[in-house]
Nucleic acid binder design. Structure first.
Length: 556
RNA sequence: UGCCCGAUAGUAUAAUGGUAGUACAACUGUUUUUGGUGCAGUUUGUCUAGGUUCGAAUCCUGGUCGGGCAACCA
C-alpha cells in the first residue's frame, strides 16, 4: 500500500496546473534569501518546501540571492547560506543573483518610462510618504508626476550616471495614488545609493527595490511557482502589474504562513541584535534558532527535514511548539546515537567486597535500538566509581527506585549492588556511599535471580577522563518574547547555558567524533563542540531525554 | 476606521457537500539492564448567528476574534 499523505494547498495548486498542462508540466521554484544574515529554522521550512515540491514533481529549484540592497549585504552571508542549504541535504539547479539582472532591470525600467508608466520624482522621502495619504485617505500627486517621457528618460539616465547624490531622486511606477492597496500608490522602483556592492562593485549607484526586482527575476528565470510568505500578499497585485506591463514570463506568486516557534525569536533583526549585543556568542551559538546554531547544537539534517514535514504548510498564522522539534531530533538520534556513560554531578561509590586493585573490562553495546547491534566498546570497572549525586537518597521516598540505605540497583553494564552505608563530610553533604556487589549478577551472565527496579550509570574512578559539558536550555523564558511588553531581550532565559567544567566521562569518549550524536545514558543527547580539542573535550547537550521521573517530582 | 488574509482538540495539520482523522503534548497500562525506546489505550475539537441542502467543518450572508498593509528594507 502506498502511504497516502494528503496534499498541502500548494501541492494541490501544482497538481491542478500539471493536469491543465500549464507550462507543459514544467515546475521551477526558487529559494531567494537576501544575504544579510544567517538562515534560521523558518528558512528551513521554506527550503524544504521549495526544494521538496520541485523534487516531488520532477522539477528544479534555483538558489537566488536577492541582493538588491548593498548596504546590508555581505559575502559572509552568501557563503553561510550556501553551506546551510547543502548541509540540509538539498541541491539547487542554478546559483543566481538578482544583481545578475541589473542591466536587464534597467532596460525594463526604461521600457516603463517609454510607456509613460514610470517617472522620476525629486521629492524627499518624507514628502513622498506624506503625499501617499493613509489607508483611509487617497494620496495626492507630487509635483513631478506629470513630467514628460523625454525628461524622465534623461533624468533616469542621469541618475544611473551618478549625477545625483543619495536620496535626491527616485524612479516610481505611475499606477494609482488612490488605490486602496497602499503598494499600488506609485511604488518606488529605483533609489540612488552610492554604495559598493559585493558582486557588482561600483558599477551601479542606483539599485532596484524588492518590488521591481523580485517578480522580474522570477520571470527572467521562468520560475513557475514563486512561493513566499504571507506578508507579501499585498505585493501580489504589483508583482502582476509589472509582469503584465513588461509583457514577460508570467511567474505566479503563492503565499504560505511563515514558521513561528515558541521560546525563541525568528526575525533577522532580533537575531542580529542578540549577536551584536553579545547575548549569544555568534550566529552559530547553539541556543540560536539558526541552521548553523542547530547544527552546532547537534541537530541532524534529517531531524530538521522531518520537522518541516510535520509542521505542515498552510495560510494560518501559527506558533509551533519547540517540543515538536525536540521530538524530531530525539526520534532520529535514538536510532543512531551511540550510548555512553557520563557523570556530571559526581559522588563517590565504594564497593567494599570488590578487590581494590582489580580492574575488570566490561563489554557494553553501542546502541540497543539497532537490529543486530551496532558494535560495542570496553568499559573499565573497579571498586571505586563515580555516580550521580541524585541517584542516591538518604531517606528514599516510596517511588524512588535508585540507591539509598539498604536499597539495590543495577550498575548499567555491570553488577547489582546494595547500599550498606554512607559517609557525610563536615558540611553534612554525602561524600561516600558504601556498597557490596553481587558477583553472580554480572551483565550478560546474571544467575543471581535478583530483579531490581533501578539501573544507574557510572564511571570508574580509575580510568575516568574529564570533559566540559555545556547544558543548553531554551533561549527565552516566555513563549512569545516578541509579543511581550517592552524589549524582547528582557525575556532572555538567564539559565539558557550551564557549564559543567569537569564531568567524568568513560574513557572511550575520548574517541568521540565530531558531527556524531551520542546519548549519555539517562541524561540526553550530546555532540562534540567545535571548541573541543584532544586535551580539552567539550560536549554540547542537544536535547535532554524525556524524563518521567523529573515530571513526577515536579508534581509534588 | 479603507483594503487584504485567516479561524478545526493544548499546538499544528487533514477531511475538497456524506463516519471529524493524524502527529506532537497530556494521561493510563505494558515491556525494558536507560524513570529512555517500543507497544496498547484514554482524554480533548469544527469562532458565532442565520441561510441553502435529504445532509454543511466544507457553499452563501451578517457578526466576532486574530493577523497584515501607509521603509529610498526584503
Amino acid at each position: 500500500m502506498s502511504e497516502e499523505r494528503s496534499l498541502n494547498f500548494l501541492e494541490e495548486i501544482i497538481e491542478e496546473d500539471i493536469r491543465n498542462g500549464k507550462n507543459d508540466g514544467r515546475i521551477l521554484t526558487r529559494f531567494p534569501p537576501e544575504p544579510n544574515g544567517y538562515l534560521h529554522i523558518g528558512h528551513a521550512k521554506s527550503i524544504c518546501l521549495n526544494f521538496g515540491i520541485a523534487k516531488k514533481y520532477k522539477g528544479k529549484t534555483n538558489l537566488r540571492f536577492d541582493d538588491t540592497n548593498p548596504t546590508t549585504e555581505d559575502v559572509e552571508y552568501v557563503d553561510s547560506i550556501r553551506e546551510d542549504i547543502k548541509w540540509l541535504g538539498f541541491e539547487w539547479d542554478q546559483e543566481l543573483y538578482s544583481s545578475n539582472y541589473f542591466d536587464q532591470l534597467y532596460d525594463f525600467a526604461l521600457n516603463l518610462i517609454r510607456l509613460g508608466l514610470a517617472y522620476v520624482d525629486d521629492s524627499t522621502a518624507e514628502e513622498i510618504a506624506a503625499a501617499k495619504g493613509t489607508p483611509t485617505e487617497p494620496g495626492k500627486p507630487t509635483p513631478n508626476r506629470s513630467r514628460s517621457i523625454e525628461e524622465n528618460m534623461q533624468l533616469f539616465e542621469d541618475m544611473k550616471a551618478g549625477k545625483y547624490p543619495d536620496g535626491a531622486k527616485v524612479l516610481r511606477a505611475k499606477i494609482d495614488l488612490a488605490s486602496p492597496n497602499m503598494h499600488l500608490r506609485d511604488p518606488l522602483m529605483y533609489r540612488i545609493k552610492h554604495a559598493h556592492h559585493h558582486r557588482t562593485g561600483d558599477k551601479w549607484c542606483i539599485y532596484p527595490m524588492y518590488d521591481f526586482a523580485h517578480g522580474q527575476s522570477d520571470a527572467i528565470e521562468q520560475i513557475t511557482h514563486s512561493i513566499c510568505t504571507l506578508e507579501f500578499i499585498p505585493h501580489r497585485p504589483l508583482y502582476e502589474w509589472f509582469i503584465q506591463k513588461l509583457n514577460i514570463f508570467p511567474s505566479k506568486q503563492y503565499e504560505f504562513a511563515r514558521l513561528n516557534m515558541n521560546y525563541t525569536v525568528m526575525s533577522k533583526r532580533k537575531l542580529l541584535q542578540l549577536v551584536n549585543e553579545n547575548y549569544v556568542t555568534g550566529w552559530d551559538d547553539p541556543r540560536m534558532p539558526t541552521i548553523s546554531g542547530l547544527r552546532r547544537r547537534g541537530y541532524t539534517p534529517l531531524s530538521i527535514r522531518n520537522f518541516s514535514e510535520r509542521i505542515g504548510v498552510a495560510r494560518r498564522e501559527n506558533l509551533i511548539d519547540l517540543g515538536l522539534l525536540e521530538f524530531c531530533i530525539r526520534e532520529d538520534l535514538n536510532k543512531s546515537a551511540w550510548r555512553r556513560m557520563v557523570v556530571m554531578d559526581p559522588v563517590k561509590l565504594i564497593i567494599s567486597n570488590y578487590p581494590k586493585d582489580r580492574i575488570e573490562v566490561m563489554d557494553a553495546e553501542n546502541n540497543p535500538e539497532v537490529e543486530g547491534g551496532d558494535g560495542s566498546r570496553p568499559i573499565p570497572f573497579s571498586s571505586e566509581l563515580w555516580i550521580e549525586r541524585d541517584d542516591f537518597m538518604e531517606e528514599p521516598t516510596k517511588k524512588y527506585f535508585r540507591l539509598g540505605p539498604g536499597l539495590m540497583v543495577r550498575l548499567k553494564n555491570a553488577y547489582i549492588i546494595q547500599c550498606d552505608s554512607f559517609v557525610k563530610d563536615e558540611t553534612g553533604r554525602v561524600s561516600e556511599i558504601h556498597c557490596t556487589y553481587i558477583p553472580e549478577s554480572k551483565s550478560g551472565s546474571d544467575t543471581s535471580g535478583i530483579h531490581v527496579k533501578g539501573t544507574i550509570h557510572w564511571v570508574s574512578v580509575a580510568g575516568a577522563k574529564t570533559a566540559e559539558i555545556r547544558l543548553y536550555d531554551r533561549l527565552f523564558r516566555v513563549e512569545d518574547p516578541s509579543n511581550e511588553e517592552g524589549d524582547f531581550k528582557e525575556y532572555i532565559n538567564p539559565d539558557s547555558l550551564t557549564v559543567i567544567k569537569n564531568a567524568f566521562i568513560e574513557p572511550d569518549l575520548a574517541n568521540a567524533r565530531p558531527g556524531f550524536g551520542y546519548q549519555f545514558i539517562r541524561k540526553g543527547y550530546f555532540s562534540l563542540d567545535i571548541d573541543s580539542s584532544p586535551d580539552h573535550l567539550v560536549f554540547n547537550r542537544t536535547v535532554t531525554l524525556k524524563d518521567a521521573w523529573a515530571k513526577e517530582i515536579s508534581k509534588s
